[in-house]
Simulated scan of single mutants.
Amino acid sequence: MNNMKSNLSYKKTKVLDHDNTEYFLYHMPLMSCIQNILEISDISQTFVLEYEELYKITKNGKENIYKEQNNRKWWKTTQSALPTGAKILSIILYSDATNCDLLSKSQLHPIYLSLGNIPTWRRNRQDAKQLGW
């Protein structure tokens, strides 16, 4: 987490009152997370906005290769349904439980954000993720 760029502009939103206890969600605005990722200098070099069809030649002819999100059929279908000039921004949200004590009795479940427009090898680096919630 120390390698993630963050402007620490987290917001606190009350989400629930239960048994005289208030529950809050601490979060960073979605657009701030995306902006922080896009400000990384080398991200723009590998950032994809277009569908790319990949094939390999086999004995039976051509076979599709599904290497990245922009090689998938859903990207092609979605892109063809968009208005002219519009592009896909694939937002990936995921959670990973974090132990908060030595006995593993207390856990937090932070939600991270990354972008599917970034190749997997680059997206797996720490700075291509944002702690959003």
Rank of each mutant, 00 (worst) to 15 (best):
M1R: 08
N2S: 13
N3C: 05
M4L: 12
N7S: 12
N7L: 08
S9K: 15
Y10L: 11
K11H: 11
K12Q: 13
K12T: 14
D17R: 13
D17S: 15
D17C: 13
H18M: 08
N20A: 13
T21Q: 15
E22N: 13
P29H: 08
L30A: 07
C33N: 01
C33P: 01
N36V: 01
I37S: 07
L38I: 05
S41V: 07
D42G: 02
I43D: 01
T46Y: 13
Y51M: 06
Y55I: 11
I57A: 12
I57R: 14
I57G: 07
I57E: 15
I57T: 15
T58N: 12
G61M: 06
K62Y: 15
E63N: 15
I65N: 13
N71V: 08
N71L: 13
R72D: 07
K73Q: 07
W75P: 03
W75Q: 02
K76V: 01
K76Y: 05
K76A: 05
Q79W: 01
P83I: 03
T84H: 01
G85D: 11
G85C: 02
G85P: 04
A86T: 02
A86G: 00
L89Y: 00
S90H: 03
I91E: 00
I92L: 02
L93K: 02
L93S: 03
Y94V: 00
S95N: 09
A97R: 09
T98W: 00
T98K: 04
N99A: 06
S104C: 07
S106T: 09
Q107R: 11
H109A: 13
Y112I: 10
Y112S: 08
L113T: 07
L113P: 08
L115M: 10
N117P: 15
P119I: 05
R123E: 08
R125Q: 09
D127K: 12
A128H: 06
K129Y: 07
L131R: 01
W133I: 06
